[in-house]
Amino acid sequence: MGLPDLRAVRETVFVREQGVPLALEWDELDPHCHHVIARDGNGNPIGTGRLTPDRSIGRMAVLAEWRGRGVGDALLRALIDRGRDLGWPELSLHAQVQAIGFYARHGFLPHGERFQEAGIEHQAMRALLDADNPVGSRAAAIAAALGVIGSARRQLTIYSRELDPGLLDAPEVLEALRRFAVGQGETRILLHDPATPQRTLSPLITLSQRLPSMFAFRAIEEPGDQSYPSAYLANDRGGYYFRPLAGRLEGETCLHAPARARQLKTTFDAVWERSRPCTEYRALGI
């Protein structure tokens, strides 16, 4: 992998497009990094990224005409897999703020305050590879939800008390649920208290009324089920975000835990079968 290929992408994106000074773009770490590069059908470089000796992902860049086509996802997966091959238990990165959701879909959670780097606002993020990642803040909770939703294939299950204000009404989470539904993903939601989100005009109910075939709600009525203290999201690709106490956002998440995700899904399905449909959530005329 030659330096000209790296320059073709990184200087186009970072220096000419984003205005990063050339002197800051290239550093003493580059010769010691693991680099990945994406090419088009003609072999031209279109994207790149690197993994530094201090176990940090960086210099993620994709040419403008190739964005939104899965190139960045492929690059990031390759870097994460390289970290696994090296036996590293954790990876970190500095995400440009507008890219937080992209990294969250791959299991990275924000930590610390935002900061300026090369004149651009950034957020530190990290991920434990194939292990439970602790969730300790609202920002991390939103990222965990984005990860579970964004990595789902066709089915998502949500076990909640009252549609989790502060989490399931966050704009970025609602947008992720909308994209999942538009892509023909089915979301099933179990609720302890369906009346409160209806009374407070939860935006998730409004979204479900626009896409009624992709969302289903049921209300938990059995006394034994009502005593369950926890809440969670789980998907059909081994991802989950579990909160021991439903009234708090603290918990744990992992996008590569199929046994745990199946366990949560089994619990969910049993309660789903004995709960009632929330017909009160249907829009008029549906």
Rank of each mutant, 00 (worst) to 15 (best):
A231K: 01
R282A: 15
P244V: 10
R84K: 11
F180R: 06
L156P: 09
V135Y: 11
L79N: 05
L284E: 14
E172P: 03
S92P: 00
H106Y: 05
A131C: 01
H122L: 14
A139D: 15
W66D: 04
V36N: 02
V148H: 09
S213N: 08
A283H: 11
A152Q: 08
Q155T: 07
L174S: 03
D30R: 00
L79M: 05
L204S: 13
A139M: 12
T157E: 11
L3W: 13
L128C: 07
A170K: 10
A145Y: 06
R276Q: 15
Q96V: 15
Y281Q: 11
A145N: 09
R114G: 15
R10P: 11
D193Y: 06
P53I: 03
H94K: 14
V182K: 15
G2H: 06
A270Y: 14
A170E: 15
G183V: 01
R77Y: 03
L29G: 08
A141M: 06
R77Q: 12
S92D: 10
L233Y: 10
L75G: 00
I286P: 03
E28T: 08
A64R: 14
L63A: 07
G112Y: 03
A144H: 09
T12G: 05
I158K: 01
G247I: 10
C278N: 03
Y281F: 15
S137H: 06
C33H: 01
E28C: 03
R260Q: 11
L156W: 05
A140Q: 14
G70T: 00
A270W: 14
R161F: 12
D130C: 02
T266Y: 03
L174K: 05
D27M: 07
P229H: 04
P194S: 07
G19M: 13
G41F: 05
A95S: 14
